[in-house]
Amino acid sequence: MTPTRRQWLHWALGATASAAASAAAGQAPAGLVWRERALLGFGTTLWLRAAHADAAHVDHALDEAVALLRHLERQMSLFDAASALCRLNRDGVLHHPDPALVEVLQLARRVSARSRGAFDVSVQPLWAAWQRAHAQGRKPTEVELAGARALVDWRAVVVSPQALRLGRPGMALTLNGIAQGYAAERARALLRGHGITAALLDTGEWAPIGQAPDSQPWQLGLASPRDSARLLATLRADGRAMAVSSDAQLRFGADPGDDHDHHILDPRSGRSPPHLSAVVVAARSAALADALTKVMFMGTPAQALAQAGRWGVDVIAVDKAGRLHASGGWG
């Protein structure tokens, strides 16, 4: 998959703008030294910002976080032909997988089971069918979709610390719906382990620590899927991670304004779900938030709100008309 950068949830400067300017110069108002790292990874731009009273300490912590992200990318990226995931897709088996790859696949299985297949990392053949047809200026036929759907089944993926196996020839996995959240979660844990008490990590999903440079909660702006310059809402971070999925990231229709066929596919039907344009999920786990944006995307706004209650998370669902439907825990 090659979706564009997730621009639909971004750091909303707002009240933090003046403090951000001083922090950019090095020393924040609270005596903390802020440092940043920006890098390309997982097919997007990753951005880490953290603070500590000791500049050398925060620099070391950020460098270790970058090294961790690079390691996770080598395990889970479809954008690197030599990654462990690409080798699994090519060979159908991967012996002695990295523990992080096992962990994220085990989480994916739990989400798949509980969502009854609304989330499924084996959806890659369906995405490939849409991509091939799009390159030819058409939509996939029913026969093509049926063939791809026959290869989609999370239960046919064997996950163990000893080996990963794809149960059917032609199966392929994508972790694009969970890996970036997992990366944010692991990097946040690493920074906390270094005693970092203020940070914001953007791996395509967002993971905050503590407060922003103005000693206020971090604020994230939710942009309209139809106009990324228009802000639909400002979300105040409460320590939970936030993840977003939008139908505007990659569309398969000939008309750029056609929002019916896009990169978010229902693994069970092989087609894009028709009701929503964007979903934001807030959860303690960034990996879970990432996966649940796809689960919530499969239904109506009312169903997304009901799912939020079942999973113990909060959700904002933006319908095709641009209306927001929010659960009650956003504050």
Rank of each mutant, 00 (worst) to 15 (best):
V244Y: 01
R49D: 02
G147D: 14
T300G: 04
A20F: 04
W218G: 00
D258C: 07
E185C: 11
T203V: 15
M296Q: 12
R138F: 06
L39A: 12
D247A: 08
L40C: 09
G312S: 13
S228N: 06
E64I: 01
W127L: 15
G257Y: 02
L151Y: 02
A189M: 05
G31R: 08
R49W: 03
H262D: 12
R116Q: 14
H194Q: 10
D63V: 02
A248F: 03
G195D: 05
G31D: 09
M1W: 10
R74P: 00
E142C: 03
P213F: 06
A150D: 11
A241P: 02
R271P: 00
Q136A: 10
S83T: 11
M296F: 11
A30V: 05
A289G: 08
A282R: 10
V244S: 07
A207K: 07
A308K: 08
S245N: 03
R132D: 14
S18F: 09
R240M: 02
R5L: 13
A148C: 05
A61S: 15
P29H: 14
V111S: 01
R90Y: 02
R271M: 11
C86L: 01
H96G: 05
A53R: 15
G312W: 10
A15I: 03
L46M: 11
A12E: 11
A283W: 06
A212E: 14
L200Q: 03
H95W: 02
S285P: 13
R35Y: 00
L105P: 00
P29V: 07
G309E: 13
V121R: 00
S115P: 04
L105N: 00
R310H: 08
P169L: 05
L222Y: 09
H263G: 04
D202I: 06
W206S: 00
K294I: 05
S22A: 09
R37K: 13
P97Q: 09
L292I: 12
S224T: 09
D290F: 07
D238Y: 06
S272D: 07
D247I: 12
I196P: 03
D290A: 12
A198L: 05
R90F: 05
Q7D: 15
E64G: 02
A113D: 15
A207P: 09
A223K: 01
A24L: 13
L72I: 06
W311E: 13
Q75L: 15
R110L: 02
R37C: 10
R226Y: 14
V121M: 05
G257L: 11
A28D: 10
S83F: 04
R188F: 02
A20L: 08
D98N: 07
G270P: 13
H262C: 08
P3A: 06
A135L: 11
A278L: 11
P217W: 07
L265F: 12
A198K: 07
Q27C: 03
W34L: 05
Q162W: 07
I316T: 14
S18D: 15
M296G: 00
E142F: 01
R74N: 08
L78T: 13
P217M: 13
T16E: 14
V157W: 03
E205T: 06
A12Q: 12
Q303E: 15
L48H: 01
A248L: 12
A241S: 14
A304C: 11
A163T: 11
P161N: 09
P208S: 04
Q75Y: 01
R6L: 00
G257K: 05
S18V: 09
G299R: 10
L78F: 01
W154E: 14
Y182T: 04
L305W: 12
V123R: 01
V279I: 15
W206A: 04
S22D: 02
A81K: 13
A61I: 14
